[in-house]
Design a protein around this nucleic acid. Structure first.
Lengths: 117, 117
DNA sequence: TTGCTATATTCTCGTTTGAGTATATTCTCT
DNA sequence: AGAGAATATACTCAAACGAGAATATAGCAA
């Protein structure tokens, strides 16, 4: 029942926001800090939590660690991320995150591997 | 973000199996005990957890407490239960639960409010 | 080297969780 | 009233969690 593991990853607001952002584009840690407006430790630890459970993958690019969803995610993870995107449409927090993502994109001071369009 | 609460409810195997069964039919506690083959306390406490968070509702019928999904569940809960049903198709545990549900139905020693067809 | 930036890890602490044992409650039937 | 069935609650304990503070690591640039 890896489903349970997926739900465990989804059941914290910070992780939920991280995964939601990753459905849009790969991002590095400092992007998350800026978009979510949360301290580095917090971001980093939740990313580690997700990484250990295979919900995200990390790749170093010079000084930055670029996080993204796995190339070929489980069917279950994919289904749930789809569901998440549906559920999230009206929520102000997630909407703000997306707006902040756009701002970060606009600045585009990012390593090549992050912030795909 | 009540979404988080929903995921918190989904992130335990017993609760997941309970909710999955409830997508099929209302059930009382002793049914869960029999179908899931878990002790009464365990079932009862997880049902309380779900009840407190509005994921299930309970109604007494004589000696039995009949649990069911709320008449009009949140959009989010509904979406996730749908997603759960999709994800669960191939999982042996959930499949066995459904088979056990049929067995319990066959005996049909149930209060009127439970075990709808 | 030294220093700087980006990120990760360790430690500590209070809270929540999940399980089990024992006990309480509620209803029904006699 | 008393007994039995179905369910709930209290208590205890160990483990996991989430947060913050401090420190460590990795890469890069001078």
């Amino acid at each position: 029942m890896d489903l349970v593991q997926i739900y465990q990853c989804l059941c914290d607001p910070t992780r939920l926001r991280i995964l939601h952002l990753l459905t849009q584009t790969p991002l590095c840690v400092c992007h998350f800090q800026e978009i979510l407006n949360e301290p580095q430790v917090k971001i980093s630890k939740h990313l580690a939590y997700l990484r250990e459970r295979g919900m995200v993958v990390a790749e170093r690019e010079q000084n930055w660690m670029i996080y993204s969803l796995p190339k070929k995610p489980d069917v279950e993870l994919e289904a749930n991320l789809k569901c998440l995107q549906d559920c999230v449409q009206t929520d102000p927090v997630f909407k703000r995150d997306l707006r902040n993502l756009e701002k970060v994109r606009a600045k585009s001071d990012a390593p090549a591997g992050a912030l795909f369009v």
